[in-house]
């Protein structure tokens, strides 16, 4: 009988586009890629336009503001524990698209109250990123998007 514990190390790369995006967060910048043909802006960024199927044409900086597109309150934590206070997260539509369901955006925490999620008044609210003092190039460099 052979007994063995595999040493399964991994090294997972964010890739070309998302590495630039994450390093941008370190400098309080939300960076997206743009396709000059269809004018679509990608946040999170992509190296190719999925509509034109060609490489995107460069980088654009977006405001760290947007509107709440969807919101959800969860009473279950990441580790499946029951929470007293819900975690509120949702999709933030960053400015820069006229299309309803195709837009540069982020899925992140929203700093608001449970009541505003329940009565859905948070939907459409204008929000701004709350940045951490110490930033490392991570999606966690933003604490949440807070109503302005």
């Amino acid at each position: 009988m052979i007994r063995y514990v595999p040493k399964a190390k991994y090294s997972y790369s964010a890739g070309q586009a998302q590495s630039v995006f994450l390093n941008g967060l370190k400098e309080k910048k939300i960076l997206g890629t743009v396709c000059n043909k269809c004018k679509k802006v990608y946040v999170p960024p992509k190296m190719y336009c999925e509509e034109c199927f060609k490489p995107t044409d460069g980088w654009v900086e977006l405001k760290d503001e947007g509107i709440v597109h969807t919101a959800i309150a969860s009473f279950v934590s990441w580790t499946r524990d029951r929470l007293e206070e819900p975690i509120i997260s949702g999709t933030i539509k960053l400015y820069g698209s006229e299309r309803d369901y195709v837009f540069p955006g982020m899925f992140h925490r929203i700093c608001t109250t449970y009541d505003k999620v329940r009565d859905m008044s948070i939907i459409g609210a204008k929000v701004k990123a709350v940045w951490n003092e110490k930033r490392v190039g991570s999606i966690e460099d933003i604490q949440c998007f807070k109503e302005v």
Binding site: K9, Y10, A14, N23
Partner: peptide, 9 residues
């Protein structure tokens, strides 16, 4: 220029 996450499974 790339970001990597390293760890042990």
């Amino acid at each position: 220029d790339l970001i990597f996450w390293k760890g042990n499974m």
